[in-house]
Each structure stands twice: as C-alpha cells, then as structure tokens.
Simulated assay, not measured.
Amino acid sequence: MKYQEDYQIQYADCDETGHVKLQALIDIFMHVSNRQLENSQAGSKEMAMKNQGWVVTQYHMEFKRLPVVAEHVQVVTNPVGYNRFFEYRDFALIADNEEIIKVQSQWVILDLEKRRIVPADSEMMARFGSPLLKKNPQMRRLKKQEYYQQTRQYRVRYDDLDLNHHMTNSHYFSWMEDMLERKFLNTHEPEMVDIKFDKEVLYGQEVTSSLIINEQTSYHLISQGDQVATIAEITWKKRNNE
C-alpha cells in the first residue's frame, strides 16, 4: 500500500551548493515511512515498546538529479512485501510530476535486548499492506576492495544514535562523503548508490572509514578491525550547471 506526503526541501537539508545531502535525503525517507508505519501501530515508538526496532540492511538508489533548497517534492514509500526475515520497501522522490530519485531497500526487525533478528510479524505486515512474497527482490552484492587509497578514524557520538541504540543509517553517508574533496562534492552528484549494512556500530566505538576512487565511482568501507560494518559504492556524475 503506497503512502505519500508533500515536502519542501529545507536549508538544513542542503549542502553549500543548495542541493539536498544524502544524509538528509535518507532522513526524509525515514520520516515518511515511519509516518505510514505509525498509522498501522508499527512505527518506531510502538516497536520500541516491544523492545524491537526496524533496521535497514541495504539500499539501492538511482538519481536523475538532486532536489534543491525550497523545492516542493512528493515523497512516496511502498512496502513491496516480506518473507520470513526481510521486509522490502521502495521509495521515490517526485518533482514536477517526474520521478527524480528511486530507492529499493531491505529491512529486518531487531530484538533490541538480544541484538538479534526476529521473524516478521505477518499480522503487523498486513496492517500496512505488505504482502508475503513468493520471490524476493534481488539486491546487489557488494564486495570489499583489495585495497583503499585513504583511511580516516571516526568515533560514534551520542548525536549519531537512533531509537535502536546504534549508529543511525543516514549518518554513514556523512562519514563517506567526508572522505571526498570539497571541490569534487561541489561539482558532482550521485547517479547511483549501493550500500549494505553488515554489522551495527554502537556508541563510543572507533571505526575506520576507507576510500578508493576509480574514474567516476567511489568505493567505501566502514570497518572495525577486520570486521566489515558497512560497504558502499557510489557512481557520480558532473552537475549539469558545471
């Protein structure tokens, strides 16, 4: 069952060029999907009362362009379906009747005490119109690169945490973009993003952000020692006005 809200891009959502930041874009999508879930007693607050939380494990994102400050858009989310452990949800951003961003995502339900995945609740899924799937959507497989050109250390701050008591997924984009040059970010925007969250990162933990760029694609790794926390690939394109 699709759900949609109107939204005006705020100054706080944008970088110094006036284009929406990836971190802010994810936060906008999360807000709208949670509004749909709240209407079915399955939002973050209701889940927390059961010591459970929605956790995204992967995104695939395609961009025609990024919206700009003060632009009016429609934010659409659609629960595509679920299986025993995964729920699949699509998002779209529409401006002037054109779909400018589309997103596929994969989710799990986490037991917040045991920090373990729990099976999907079929009654809850039915309340917001998510059907049981016979065939799962295919999500792209991402591989760790053999080496990376740059590394930088980060620490999970209190401000990074969400209701699941771990690093919120949108903040990973801030760490990854921070590895890129200012001039590059001001003259390029994403064309495609794939990101997979393999291991949660908790308050106070130190992680390493690694980067290698090959032509127009940046490859990112967030790791703790030898353990992969998050892996991502971003394909970039020059801005039309450059």
Rank of each mutant, 00 (worst) to 15 (best):
M1G: 14
Q4F: 07
E5R: 14
Y7F: 14
Y11Q: 08
A12R: 11
T17P: 07
T17N: 09
H19D: 05
H19G: 01
V20H: 02
K21S: 13
L22F: 10
Q23K: 12
I26K: 02
D27C: 07
D27A: 15
V32S: 08
V32P: 08
L37R: 04
E38V: 10
Q41D: 12
A42H: 01
G43C: 09
S44F: 07
K45W: 08
E46D: 14
M47N: 05
M49G: 09
Q52F: 01
Q52C: 13
G53N: 05
V55R: 06
V56A: 12
F63H: 03
P67C: 02
V69E: 09
V69P: 03
A70S: 08
E71W: 06
H72E: 12
V73R: 06
V73S: 09
Q74K: 13
Q74Y: 03
V76L: 12
T77N: 13
N78C: 07
Y82W: 07
Y82E: 11
N83F: 04
F85R: 03
F86S: 10
D90Y: 02
I94T: 09
D96P: 04
N97D: 15
N97E: 15
E98S: 10
E98P: 03
E98H: 11
I100L: 00
I100K: 00
I101V: 15
S105V: 06
S105H: 00
Q106C: 15
Q106E: 14
W107L: 08
D111V: 07
L112C: 06
L112M: 14
L112S: 05
L112A: 04
E113C: 03
R115V: 11
R116N: 12
P119F: 00
M124A: 09
M125P: 04
G129V: 01
S130V: 06
P131I: 02
L132F: 10
R140V: 13
L142A: 07
K144A: 08
E146G: 10
T151A: 08
R152H: 10
R152W: 04
R152L: 06
R152C: 06
R152A: 13
Q153A: 12
Q153T: 14
Y154N: 05
V156R: 04
V156D: 07
V156H: 04
R157Y: 13
R157K: 12
Y158R: 03
Y158I: 05
D159L: 11
L161Q: 09
N164D: 08
H165S: 10
T168F: 05
S170W: 01
W175M: 13
W175S: 06
M176E: 06
E177P: 02
E177W: 01
E181I: 00
E181R: 00
E181F: 00
R182C: 08
K183E: 15
K183G: 02
H188G: 07
E189W: 08
M192I: 09
V193I: 15
D194L: 05
K196S: 14
F197T: 05
V201M: 06
V201I: 15
Y203A: 11
S210R: 08
N214T: 14
E215I: 03
T217W: 06
T217F: 05
H220L: 00
L221V: 07
L221R: 07
I222R: 02
S223H: 01
G225S: 01
G225K: 00
V228M: 11
A229L: 03
T230R: 02
I231C: 04
I231S: 09
I231Q: 11
T235R: 15
W236C: 01
R239F: 03
E242M: 13
